[in-house]
Amino acid sequence: MRKGVAAQEAPEMTGERPLQKAEQIYGLLRQAIVRLAMVPGAAISEKELCLQYGVSRTPVREALKRLAEEDLVDVFPHSGTYVSKISYEVAEEGFVIRRALEIESIRRATRFVTEAEIRRLDALIAEMRDILRRDALTDYIEVDDAFHATIAEISRFPRIWKFINLMKAHLDRMRQLSAPVPGHLAEVTEQHAAIVRALERRNADQAELAMKIHLDASFAVMSAMHEDGQFFRRND
């Protein structure tokens, strides 16, 4: 993990409108923060970002403003801008919202799921297993999200996942911290498989139970990260 701006190749942004540039920079920075490429507490230099992306300060400041609104960046006038520390309370709130919506989503999905959609979910699980074999753990969260987003699509309420995604940034950083826990992601993958098999049977109760087991067990592992405290706010 780097302590400053994420080490990624900046896209070509010449000729784009300031709002488009700001949106793109926002997306790249948000991903870097969630994936912990920009670690909690790291200083952010507007000048470095401008050089990295080849833009003026206007789109950079707009991107940072949006990140501050999501509580992912702390801006201290006359002092500096920093990646925010993880708030356990905000992460827990995101988990509670996610759990409630995903339980509703999975129950609805059992009514609509098709064989083609089961194959899509199985393909994502196969991708997760490949990630584990390659030990590319930082890539897991994106495939994990694709899995849950697909269930929301199957439920015919795809905006459920869009809303969850807005609420879970602090939770996602805890997910990333928990990725290296021995055996954790392997267990998560098998929990995903259990969810798919319940969907395949069109059994709403079994699917709900499988989803609850998955989400609750994952959050228990993530919560243990809070005890270390290095990347967390001490007082929220």
Rank of each mutant, 00 (worst) to 15 (best):
V181M: 08
D145C: 04
L209M: 12
A169L: 06
E200D: 09
L185R: 11
H184L: 08
P180C: 10
Q206I: 00
A169N: 12
D228T: 13
M225Y: 02
E127F: 06
A100D: 12
M128C: 15
G94Q: 08
F147G: 08
L137S: 08
A152K: 04
A116N: 12
V196C: 06
H148Y: 10
D145V: 00
L101W: 08
E153I: 05
D135G: 01
M222S: 06
R156N: 00
R98A: 11
I106W: 00
V90F: 05
A91H: 06
I164Q: 05
E115K: 12
D144F: 08
A193Q: 15
H184E: 13
F95N: 09
L171K: 13
S178W: 07
R107I: 09
E187R: 11
R98C: 06
G183P: 04
E208K: 11
L209V: 10
R201H: 08
I160W: 03
T114S: 12
L171M: 12
V96F: 14
L124P: 01
V181W: 08
M225N: 00
A220T: 13
L132R: 05
H192K: 06
G94R: 11
R202F: 03
E190S: 12
Q191P: 04
E93T: 14
I131H: 05
A146G: 04
A149F: 06
I141Y: 09
M128F: 03
I118E: 02
V113F: 05
L215F: 09
V96W: 14
Q191Y: 08
L137W: 04
I131E: 05
P182K: 06
R134S: 10
R119D: 09
D172V: 01
T150S: 14
A193S: 15
A169M: 07
Q206C: 00
L215Q: 14
R107C: 01
I125L: 04
I106R: 07
A179I: 07
H170L: 00
R175K: 13
W161I: 04
F219R: 11
I131R: 07
L166K: 09
R175I: 01
K162N: 11
A186E: 15
E115Y: 02
S105V: 09
F219L: 12
E208P: 02
R134W: 03
A210I: 02
L209K: 13
E93F: 13
E93G: 07
I86Q: 06
E117C: 08
F163L: 15
L121Y: 03
I131A: 10
T150G: 00
I97A: 09
M211N: 09
R111W: 05
F157M: 03
F163Q: 09
S155V: 01
L215C: 03
A217M: 11
E117S: 10
